[in-house]
Write a protein that binds this DNA or RNA. Sequence first.
RNA 1: GGGCGCUUAGCUCAGCGGGAGAGCACUACCUUGACACGGUAGGGGUCACAGGUUCAAUCCCUGUAGCGCCCACCA
Length: 897
Amino acid sequence: MLEKSFDHKAIEPMLYAAWEEDGAFAAGATGGDPFTIMIPPPNVTGSLHMGHALTFTLQDTLVRWRRMQGRDALWQPGTDHAGIATQMVVERQLAAKGESRAALGRDAFLARVWQWKAESGGTITTQLRRLGASLDWPRERFTMDDGLSAAVREVFVTLFNQGLIYRDRRLVNWDPKFRSAISDLEVENKEIRGSLWYISYPVEGSDERLVVATTRPETMLGDSAVAVNPEDARYTHLVGKFVVLPLTGRRVPIIADSYSDPEKGTGAVKITPAHDFNDFAVGERHSLPMPSILDRDARITLGEIEDELAHVAGVADPDFVRTLAGLSREDARKAIVAELERLEFLVKIEPHTNQVPHGDRSDAVIEPLLTVQWYCRADVLAAPAIAAVEDGRVKFVPKQWENTFFAWMRDIKPWCISRQLWWGHRIPAWYGPDGQVFVAKTADEAAALALAAYGEVLEITQDDDVLDTWFSSGLWPFSTLGWPDKTADLARYYPTDVLVTGFDIIFFWVARMLMMGLHFMGDVPFRTIAIHGLVRDERGQKMSKSKGNVIDPLTLIDEYGADALRFAVLQQTGPGRDIKLGPTLVASGRGFVTKLWNAARFCEMNGVAPVAGFDPASVTSPLCRWLLAETNTAIVSATAALEAYRFDDYAFACYQFTWGSFCDWFVELAKPVLNGSDEAAAAELRATAAHVLGLTIRLLQPAIPFATDALWEGMGFGAARSLISAPWPEPMVLSNVAAAQAEIAWVIRLISAVRELRGEMNVPPATLAPVFLADASRQTLDRAARYEDAVRRLARANQVGPLVGTIPTGAAQIMLDEATIVLPLAGLIDLTAERKRLTRDHDRARDDADKLERKLAGADFVARAKPDVVEDTRLRAQTARDEQARLAAALARLGAG
RNA sequence: GGGCGCUUAGCUCAGCGGGAGAGCACUACCUUGACACGGUAGGGGUCACAGGUUCAAUCCCUGUAGCGCCCACCA
């Protein structure tokens, strides 16, 4: 016996444990074609959030569906070491205990991070199990596993030897909070309301002053030129002369460079090559000195200008400048502005908004800084990736994301891959005493390289830096399968089938996997990229801690069940659309699960049980045949939807069928049969119901795996937990279902029409009324007779049959096909209201007919429109006109008010 | 500054070159023997605006407005 309701709290964890124990998610269990999805590895120390719930529900749905189709499904689990994020968490913990990374030292710090990983690394995987994710757990990988680390070293060394990884000293985005370089992608520009300061620079050997505008006055300590546009007549006479910088007294040239925009500021722009990307380019063009005046904490440092400070005079004030050393950018700015004002070099201050780069994780203002870093020639690697998308070897769903992808890839910049962190893959490069570089997979190999190159044993030390986290996640589709070894798994499961992920990591991750996969495997890492939206709250607001609208998926699972959450997610997931989620929607998901559960209970209570050898083609009753036809429609729609990654359509097809077709109509129409005396009819109905219920459960397994599994076993469809590998439903072969469909459709229309009328006339449900048919065909009368019990029950009728005699005055009348349904409600209904109703319907029919006839009267329409459209319009016009006539007659019968 | 997307019922969204849809919310009624996490019925929309193409436009094209997202050199 099924329980009265599905107790998700008790059943879900129990079932999952049993699945796992069974090895139900293990790849390689069938000989079918592989179907592979790589999990986007979540941060090992993270916990499940709504974005995870979304993406993993979609992936699990696809995997479960393909597994039922007989595919050898592999959903590869694993986690990411997430360099910055994890190091940040552990550093915060240290700080809370009064410790610090620096005090601990590298090895001890890393030991702490591993310890933290051991403690919290299981959180996310436990939570994935709560969601029902059918991952092949024994294959779980971590990006810093030995095998994956070996893959990283292999890739680094290979790319280095191919000239695709190199070291360079240039400006990087420096995050002063993490004291590390970050890549362009990790920079977020934020609009900041600030000021534009106009500063006058005295022109050497003249009384003239050149005014520059800047948003960063503090960088003037590092100015090495002022640039004007060569076309700018205001300044041509100054090009080649020098200005003397206030404060430092440095002489810097006035140069002509087209970078200077006459429209912006004063048209003269100060050039600080070491602290601005554009200025750096100008500096390179004009061979300018590039003094850095900010250190790795973004504090003022005077080291590189100390010498000149000792030798200046005049406008300069070395003593003031020295007071700036060690100040933050913000403090230095204030001090410098105040000093400039005091010395009357400050011309004016204007309010100004501009885009200021911030670190996406630290939220610190990024400082362009001149440092030596490792770079990857992304442009070279990008070309094959672009080609793969262009020629369709990889498809984005929805396709529009290809534009975004191309735009970025075609203009890709060198990828800065080194990070000044400790947690991550240490760069496999060693340096000799004179800065010689040896790139190798191990220290021994590096030493051997050094020996070979210099003929002596060199003292070599490994690079302190680690690699960008995305460097290792870019290898995920093949490193998890054993690469660089040529494993059987690699041969079988690569390329994977589909990557499911959010648009926010197309550049970070998707593009890198494509580049690395093509370069090292010679084939794309996945054939389809299914991009989903962002999870928002029920009002469409982005979830954020500061807004306080973050919903914890685990809370929702506790309250409503994983099935409910999953179903709600699927219902919301349309292509390229953000997903709205919250308690109301998840509650409605639970409502659906409950509905299915209760439908099954109803079946069980009525003796519905699977019948061995049941053949859908042999079913005779129209109701059963109609149900089978409806089931086929659901199977076709659901399958097509999943094939197209239309998760919302999949959920809707299942929902509509289960709730609308099965519960609302089939079950209700079946009740009289089940309670009736025709045993053969009841038996056929039970067998059909069982068959259809079994198909429904299978259709829904990918969406709501827990409840369906419980039903599958509880109703005797199969052995415990055999649903996971039960075959995915195929449309049944049914012949000539049209007659059955027409018949049941008619019954539904009859019942609905009577209900509608009673509702409109405010006839209380407790009042039973006869339903008579006038002008009805033989077929209609037969149908009415066959479904009399159902109509009585569902249309609150105490009698159903042909009208004897003429339509009585005061009876309500409904036009249904050729027949007029007569409800002799004299005394029960308000004749005025009925007259009003009939008049309204009459006028509506007349207006429709008028409109359609007008359309048909137009010569162009008949001549140019498609013949079937014209024919259809004629038919509709005729029908409307007939209906109008019959309603007019009905009104006449009702008598005058 | 460049690019992409959106604008349809109170809300969230489908849809589509020829008859305006769903879910939720709302209103009324119903404790009918699977389910009140239920049932039945109902109200509610000039399909953002302006042009154009077409026999026919919510749908295609152009423009306008508003909103959202991504990218971009901090004067």
